[in-house]
């Protein structure tokens, strides 16, 4: 345990020293400050004051909106934004973890310690996830506090977005680790992982794609890939839906939530296991 804790600590020190952690948190902080300033503008203050005086609704133009629903709308919209940006930033900040480890002259230093290869790799994976989780908690937690402070509307559901995004990051990071173990290249890991992200999103339209294909095997291939790859498009919509409550979640294509999360989890676990297996067999 001591050895693995040291390995995790080393990842954090590296992140802090390499500016990635600093940049990551600086960007988040700027965003939070912008948001805090925006909700403090007179017009917002006025509207919110009105809402508090005349019951729980805000005048927007000529229609009046329930403040609870307004906050929910913002929170779910922000979750969708964070799903995309948070995932990309997290991968950007962690994709180097394996290639860096495997560098000639560096890997020897780690593997000559009495730590198994699989625990070593998993400790770096865990460290990467902790890094991403800390950032998500910081962003979502700060916004949530500002919202509670300004509107007195408390939505625990906002945090579900964080969990759902972290799940997506965990899956994609596993894939980035696999590519990292094989290629030892941060650039290739990032590109391949982003490619998987978009390719999978396109596959959400699998039924229309396979219907348009003339070859039977091609259609079958599309269907198979659809089931194998992470469901990035559906996960994005599910993230928003968790925060918004059921009203925005009118089914995701032909898939239920369990299938979305289940098949994605299988992809993540399988790629992580493959990465561990290849790493443990590698000659350095």
């Amino acid at each position: 345990m001591r050895a693995l804790a040291a390995s995790v600590e080393e990842v954090f020190r590296e992140a802090a020293a390499r500016w990635t952690l600093v940049a990551y948190f600086t960007l988040s902080t700027i965003f939070i400050l912008l948001f805090a300033t925006a909700v403090n503008l007179d017009i917002v203050n006025g509207a919110l004051a009105g809402a508090k005086l005349f019951g729980q609704s805000v005048e927007i133009g000529r229609s009046s909106v329930d403040i609870d629903r307004l906050v929910l709308g913002f929170e779910s919209g922000f979750s969708g934004f964070l799903y995309l940006v948070g995932t990309f930033l997290a991968l950007f900040a962690t994709a180097h973890l394996v290639p860096r480890l495997q560098e000639k002259g560096t890997i020897d230093l780690y593997l000559s310690r009495p730590v198994g290869r699989v625990p070593l790799l998993l400790s770096r994976y865990t460290a990467g996830l902790l890094l991403a989780a800390a950032n998500l908690l910081y962003l979502i937690g700060s916004l949530w506090l500002i919202i509670v402070w300004k509107t007195h509307v408390v939505h625990g559901r906002f945090f579900l977005a964080g969990l759902s995004i972290l799940f997506t990051i965990a899956t994609l990071l596993a894939f980035a680790f696999l590519v990292g173990v094989v290629t030892s290249s941060t650039g290739v890991s990032l590109m391949a992982t982003y490619a998987i992200f978009f390719f999978s999103a396109i596959l959400a339209a699998h039924s229309r794609i396979s219907a348009a294909l003339s070859k039977d095997w091609a259609a079958k291939l599309v269907e198979a890939l659809y089931w194998i790859f992470p469901k990035t498009a559906q996960l994005g919509r599910a993230t928003v839906a968790h925060v918004a409550g059921d009203q925005a979640f009118r089914g995701i294509g032909d898939m239920n939530l369990l299938a979305v999360y289940g098949s994605t989890a299988i992809f993540g676990i399988a790629t992580l296991m493959l990465a561990c297996w290849l790493f443990s067999r590698k000659d350095f």
Binding site: R2, A3, A5, A6, S7, E9, E10, R13, E14, A16, A17, R18, E103, K104, G105, T106, D108, L109, Y110, S112, R113, P114, V115
Partner: peptide, 29 residues
């Protein structure tokens, strides 16, 4: 119970000498 000095080794540049020994010492338990 083994100490190893690799050929052409590269320690993480962001650690100080003391931190390096602390991290790798803990990795050896």
């Amino acid at each position: 119970r083994v100490g190893y000095l690799p050929e052409g080794h590269r320690f993480p540049g962001y650690l100080t000498a003391r931190e390096t020994l602390a991290i790798f010492g803990r990795m050896s338990g």
